[in-house]
Design a protein around this nucleic acid. Structure first.
Lengths: 144, 144
DNA sequence: CCTTGACCTAAAGTGAGCTTTAGAAATTAC
DNA sequence: GTAATTTCTAAAGCTCACTTTAGGTCAAGG
């Protein structure tokens, strides 16, 4: 495969560190798109690497695939996203990040005041009554 | 059930907001212990409320059940944990929280420098090469 | 006493995010 | 040209943290 052209799924996997199976999964979830060559194999545009880079980062922050898909609807489908396209997403993303970090810090500070405070009532406990905005709306692990 | 005595699973659920099924699950996972009354029903010591409060908070921070169990091994089994017992756990917990928050902040700052930066190479991208310590070691959602 | 609601166990089901498997076709390397 | 590697699809499997279900037992109120 010549340089400057599209990439096979294996090449994308190697460059991003994301498993081939995960890339195929992302495609089924609408996070990635791929052309097909004559033999039916996926060929990814180089701009896809950037999308994947974003997916990796967003997942580290705990964003679900559904939420990432929502952010991606702002990216153009018929041309390679430019800096302005990404900046719009970054703005929205950044705001959510700040909110999440602030929420975690608040929870941490509540914890400081509560652990060892001797309170036995869940009703009065600052920890228990901490900002629920950090709580998951579904099941499963969070943050790490 | 008189005041000052042990609590039924329904009472614990009501006070903590944790589902009865989740409480039973936590018991199977070794996060909680319960005595049984003559009829075989669970009776929770009041100190259990504090353990549950901690579980709720730790989960908001993304700690897995396995990790919470590890933190709990430092709590005494044969007596009610006192402030000193909890403080030891809080110290360890707090350190991990700070690390996680710092890691998220670093990732956010890397994002600021990377989104829209025009770099196309995953090898050079600060975002892609951000601190991997935040990455999950298993499957599933994180942080929220 | 008897009904109603709370509680019991064990096992199966759920949803997110993938991975693994199986069997076949395409591509690359020699 | 042929062997090895990569890729393909569809479906099943896996982990985590629970919930739901099914079929009972226990406890509190009237």
């Amino acid at each position: 495969m010549a340089l400057g052209t599209e990439l096979s799924i294996g090449q994308v996997a190697q460059r991003t560190g994301v498993a081939v199976s995960a890339l195929r999964y992302y495609e089924t979830q609408g996070l990635l798109q791929a052309n097909r060559n004559a033999g039916g194999q996926r060929r990814f545009a180089r701009a896809t690497l950037r999308r994947i880079s974003f997916i990796i980062a967003a997942q580290k922050f705990g964003f679900s695939i559904a939420r990432i898909r929502e952010l991606f609807v702002n990216l153009p489908e018929n041309r390679t996203p430019n800096e302005t396209d990404w900046s719009k997403i970054a703005l929205e993303f950044r705001a959510e990040l700040d909110a999440k970090i602030a929420s975690l810090e608040k929870l941490r500070d509540n914890l400081d005041g509560c652990i060892g405070c001797g309170c036995l009532s869940m009703k009065k406990c600052a920890l228990y009554n901490a900002d629920d905005k950090v709580a998951a709306h579904g099941a499963g692990a969070q943050l790490l």
